[in-house]
Design a binder for these strands. Structure first.
Lengths: 225, 225
DNA sequence: GTCTATAAACGGATAGAC
DNA sequence: GTCTATCCGTTTATAGAC
């Protein structure tokens, strides 16, 4: 599985190329030949190692998301142990949720990129490679964080807490996918654009403030535009 | 262009089918034959009416997003006229931004669905059919709202304002795309799931609170998970 | 495990009859 | 404007040599 040589073996090179190309173009728009071409291996190796194009996609996610059963809640466990029954502060919880639950485990495939578009893409692109085999650990982790958030913010209903976590996932996925349809980062030559830590630094006060806000559901909302 | 008959003409049926299938499967994963099959018309009609698959995609967005040059900022104009030089309250501005700038104009193509996954998909899917021909009016509208937000929230830098608008777009796109990888809406049988107005009602306090929050960029943020 | 060659189906686009 | 038949490149996947 591991070689002491200079070049990774064919299987790894295929995974690397597939990860990058699926990320850039999406699943359907990426052909097996593009992948093998980029990896410098014959086409047949994809089917030999992964069975099919979809099998390759699944292998890419499996590798990117980390080992199965890997505890994605261990950090939360630690926080709760330290708190000793007390509620954990919101900002700490938000940090933990962003860095631990939503963040990917595997680091820098290409060149120091810690954050992955891959997971962002997984949240949106339909078809094989997304919901179908998305690990259950993520949903379990989400539920653990839901409980923690509800302890910290007892003034919110469960629905409100879940909705707000849902919104957070949306923001993070959008940023992770690196999408910018409005061309905001171009138009305003935005600082921190593309820098995960910078983005998260901008994100945190926004999210924390949003999360602690009173629910306040108002009946009629939108004027006709 | 319009018939008094029962069935819409071929061109319209193609647009309807394409809108639905592009929305469900994405652009690359949807073939022209799938579309013409669903529409009950021969394949050749796509090229006759729209020139190419991409031309069809553009026509779909053109129809969904409303007429070109349609003023997407007219409501903001009205608000600013009423304010008479004064800053517009944040919640009003947020409402206007959500309902007017980001919302789609065309209603219920399929069956009473006002909100569109289509635009949500446009925000994420790579390749043709997304950023390439996304109308400039959207970006213009964003800039108008940026100016309004900066007047209302002078304690924020331009970067912070733009970032927060960016986050909002991310949330809305996620909700619009209807994606829910964590299966939150299933798991918790979430109230308001799928109901645009309900979602927006949940969204508003979250966004308003996040937007007015002090920037507070902190140097070191995330503990190792 | 790696490669060449090929199979079998599907992709978008078009020519030309009606 | 609508339809049939077809072209031609590309797709995934496989068979079989090395």
């Amino acid at each position: 599985m591991a070689r002491s040589d200079s070049l990774p073996d064919a299987k790894t090179r295929i995974l690397d190329a597939a990860e990058r190309l699926f990320m850039e173009n999406g699943y359907a728009a990426t052909s097996v030949r593009m992948i093998t071409g980029a990896a410098g291996v014959p086409v047949a190796l994809v089917n030999y190692h992964f069975g099919s194009k979809q099998g390759l996609m699944e292998a890419v996610y499996e590798r990117a998301l980390g080992a199965r059963g890997g505890s994605r809640v261990s950090y939360l466990d630690k926080l709760e142990a330290e708190a000793g029954g007390q509620a954990i502060p919101v900002d700490v919880l938000v940090d933990a949720f962003l860095s631990s639950a939503l963040r990917l485990t595997r680091k820098d495939t290409i060149s120091g990129e810690v954050f992955k578009q891959l997971i962002g893409r997984a949240f949106y692109e339909p078809g094989p490679g997304t919901e179908a085999f998305f690990p259950i650990e993520y949903r379990e982790a989400v539920d653990r964080y839901r409980q923690a958030f509800m302890r910290t913010l007892p003034h919110l209903s469960q629905d409100d807490v879940v909705w707000r976590m849902y919104f957070i996932v949306g923001i993070v996925a959008y940023a992770m996918a690196g999408k910018d349809v409005m061309r905001m980062t171009e138009t305003y030559s935005l600082a921190d654009a593309g820098r995960p830590d910078g983005i998260l630094a901008r994100l945190r006060p926004f999210i924390v403030a949003g999360f602690v806000a009173p629910a306040g559901v108002m009946p009629t909302l939108f004027a006709s535009a």
